[in-house]
Simulated assay, not measured.
Amino acid sequence: MFKKGRDRETQGYGDWVRAFEAERERRARRGDPAWERGARLPPSLVRSLQRFQVGEDGDGAELLGKAARAGDAQYTAAAHLFVAEEQNHARLLALLLEAGGARTLESHWSDTVFVRLRRLLGLRLELLVLMVAEAVALRYYRALRDGGADPLLREVAGRILADEERHVPFHCRRLREGFARVPRPARYAVTGGWRLLLAGAAVLVAVDHGAALRRCGVTRSVFVRDIVASSAVMAAVIAGRDVTFAAPAVGTGQHGYPQVA
């Protein structure tokens, strides 16, 4: 996802807005998966998907309110489009569960804790906590896409994963800007603490969803190890190492990831 390069840093979030809009149009042209073919989902995967569906659901009002108060109209527009993609993930997972003969959950304790933590302070903390979920989601949906036995499950997971791979650099960029004026030692302390929080969350998810992960060929230890390893470059980006941002390539299926020099 992150690689070396010398691309110029994008000024403003106009390119991100256009990229989100282009993806929305591409998604509309593509249409939904063929739900009518149904899905064969073992109980462990049903329970796991139900909990992730709850986490994807929500109106994003808290995040959007903080984005608006930050005073960047382009970023706020991009944040609205990001929230719409997350809501679409919740819709896809709900329809996948329905195709498998299962219902969604009204709530789950893990999502309640996560939401309350995000609402404690301002936009930076909101995004740091959100990035914990995004980093976990990257590995989770990759496991389902690559190791799921059901074709519909793999297709839905692949669609969501493609979105998450764009969301991570989008949030990394905003966090990097948000911490740009914070002294370097403090930035490193924040990102170090974030990595510890992420590691703890990865362990909890691995324990809670271990049976589903094993169904997809991923052990708990591999799941946690991969998430912790991936967090190193994310933390480096947020902390402000020598990074430039290529503009998202609109309409090409390629994404504007941070380029770590």
Rank of each mutant, 00 (worst) to 15 (best):
residue 97 L to E: 03
residue 73 A to E: 13
residue 118 R to P: 11
residue 48 S to E: 09
residue 98 E to W: 04
residue 126 E to V: 10
residue 61 A to G: 09
residue 92 L to M: 06
residue 67 A to E: 08
residue 113 V to H: 13
residue 128 L to C: 14
residue 66 K to W: 00
residue 98 E to P: 05
residue 81 L to I: 05
residue 55 G to V: 04
residue 103 R to E: 12
residue 122 G to F: 12
residue 57 D to A: 11
residue 104 T to L: 03
residue 49 L to K: 07
residue 56 E to A: 04
residue 128 L to D: 12
residue 53 Q to D: 05
residue 87 Q to S: 01
residue 92 L to A: 04
residue 73 A to N: 05
residue 116 R to A: 15
residue 60 G to V: 07
residue 90 A to W: 01
residue 96 L to Y: 01
residue 92 L to E: 00
residue 61 A to K: 09
residue 59 D to S: 12
residue 51 R to F: 09
residue 120 L to A: 13
residue 103 R to C: 05
residue 99 A to N: 08
residue 97 L to A: 02
residue 104 T to S: 05
residue 85 E to P: 07
residue 62 E to R: 15
residue 67 A to T: 11
residue 79 A to I: 07
residue 120 L to N: 11
residue 75 Y to C: 08
residue 87 Q to H: 01
residue 52 F to Y: 03
residue 81 L to W: 08
residue 99 A to W: 04
residue 113 V to L: 15
residue 105 L to T: 03
residue 109 W to E: 12
residue 49 L to S: 07
residue 64 L to N: 06
residue 95 L to W: 02
residue 117 L to S: 15
residue 111 D to R: 13
residue 76 T to L: 12
residue 84 A to H: 00
residue 50 Q to R: 09
residue 51 R to E: 15
residue 97 L to D: 01
residue 119 R to P: 10
residue 123 L to V: 10
residue 52 F to C: 06
residue 74 Q to R: 11
residue 61 A to Y: 06
residue 112 T to D: 13
residue 84 A to L: 02
residue 50 Q to D: 08
residue 88 N to T: 07
residue 70 A to W: 07
residue 92 L to K: 00
residue 67 A to C: 11
residue 67 A to D: 08
residue 73 A to F: 10
residue 92 L to H: 06
residue 102 A to M: 04
residue 118 R to A: 15
residue 61 A to M: 08
residue 106 E to H: 09
residue 76 T to K: 10
residue 121 L to F: 14
residue 114 F to A: 09
residue 70 A to C: 08
residue 95 L to K: 04
residue 83 V to S: 07
residue 112 T to K: 15
residue 54 V to F: 03
residue 82 F to K: 02
residue 96 L to E: 04
residue 53 Q to G: 09
residue 88 N to G: 05
residue 125 L to R: 11
residue 121 L to R: 15
residue 80 H to F: 11
residue 104 T to P: 00
residue 114 F to P: 02
residue 120 L to H: 12
residue 111 D to H: 12
residue 94 A to C: 03
residue 69 R to M: 10
residue 61 A to I: 06
residue 121 L to D: 10
residue 113 V to C: 11
residue 98 E to T: 00
